[in-house]
Design a protein around this nucleic acid. Structure first.
Lengths: 225, 225
DNA sequence: CTGACTTTGTGCATCGGTTCACAAAGGGAT
DNA sequence: ATCCCTTTGTGAACCGATGCACAAAGTCAG
């Protein structure tokens, strides 16, 4: 059972928050395999982190382990889910139904737990009206109305770079404060609005940097194999 | 002091490397608008960071600015490109041509500079043979052969979670040491292999955490911001 | 050439995050 | 109940990243 009021240090470090979903995924896998309890060591391995870090991360949520035993898988799933806000249902709108938007709409794991794609929105009349992943694509003119009507609180931007800032401004204006941005631009938003960025080309460039270094540094092999 | 033409400080901090692509993008935008020189302040604003950080980042590459003036846009573009290894051409293979793989293959900005999608690979006979983004989808059996033949050095995994580790093992076995993983699994790889992970559901969960907190949270807390 | 002005590059203090290492807490056996 | 074994939770050292603030280095006007 849950301790009623654990006035837990509401300041969970960002680095910890970023790892909680990782632990949660590992725990879900264990729950499916009917594993009842898990040690910090085992869970850490499954999540790809070291066990001291995992223990410190979990300690920020409360004291949910049992010394000498480990953590109860189901209980920990619940606690982490609650902490992340996954015990409620989040309505997500995807703006921009190009290749990427379409992929996101169809991507099952993307909306597995706690999230629900509630709207698809695009500006192209060619696409508006189409059914994708069981949803009707609505026109960008309806943006504000749709967001309010469906109670959307998280917006995914999969628009072209040039359109991202404008769409961003509009959704912020109707009260959205959480945005996941796939467009390769730096969005400017007022304080209090969270923007997370996923940038494929940046990831590739970081890989290229390390790859180059492994290959002998710049100006060495142009044609290596 | 050192000669300004010999920067070669081989220890560029990871945090800096992660931001260089951001600067590069901003600089490209400026170059297109025919801006010849830029101050650290202006570039920092364009890239969404603070100027001291930007200057420190650039100082790791060498001393490429002119006091009292700023940085030459074109020269800085070249230096950062070179440092990131973008002056050479990287052959990228995308494994898994589902919705996401397809989106990546078509995503223009994804392969704009320095990168080239050299192969699309899938296991589904339904998809193999299709032409996507001007490329023929090849069968997973050909994985090793294609990677060698095309000189692929970076592999993008867009497979289902269950297949990712196996594909990963196979590409590592033929010498690939840079992997961009979109599958929601923790890949285990030998030392020396770089894996970067893009995980859509984790990003959403992080947003949900902050959104929940803003909305009052499981326990209404100090609303500092 | 000199002096006013601009902007870089960096020393230094600080901060957040990671890791180590161990005392405390619990279980199980006898 | 007592001892032994396992594993958590955390104090403290460490490490890298951030941001301030300023001297050094350059431009430009006269």
């Amino acid at each position: 059972m849950k301790s009623p009021s654990q006035p837990r240090d509401r300041g969970i470090p960002d680095a910890t928050v970023a790892r909680l979903p990782l632990y949660l995924r590992a725990l879900h896998g264990m729950a499916e395999r009917a594993i009842a309890t898990v040690s910090s060591e085992d869970l850490a391995v499954a999540a790809g982190v070291n066990s001291a870090k995992l223990r410190k991360d979990l300690s920020h949520l409360g004291s949910y382990g049992t010394r000498g035993v480990g953590y109860d898988v189901e209980y920990l799933v619940y606690q982490i889910s609650r902490e992340l806000g996954l015990t409620q249902d989040w309505a997500v709108a995807i703006v921009g139904v190009g290749n990427l938007g379409r992929a996101l709409a169809n991507y099952g794991g993307f909306v597995s737990r706690g999230f629900r794609v509630a709207a698809l929105i695009d500006a192209d009349p060619e696409v508006v009206g189409d059914d994708i992943a069981g949803l009707n694509v609505e026109h960008i003119d309806e943006l504000e109305a749709v967001i309010k009507r469906r109670g959307v609180s998280i917006v995914v931007l999969a628009t072209p770079a040039a359109a991202a800032q404008e769409v961003c401004d509009r959704v912020v204006a109707v009260g959205v404060t959480s945005i996941l941005n796939f467009a390769p631009v730096v969005l400017s938003v007022p304080d209090g609005v969270d923007v997370r960025k996923v940038d494929l080309s940046i990831e590739l460039q970081i890989l290229a940097f390390h790859e180059q270094r492994k290959a002998g540094g710049p100006l060495m092999a142009v044609d290596s194999q």
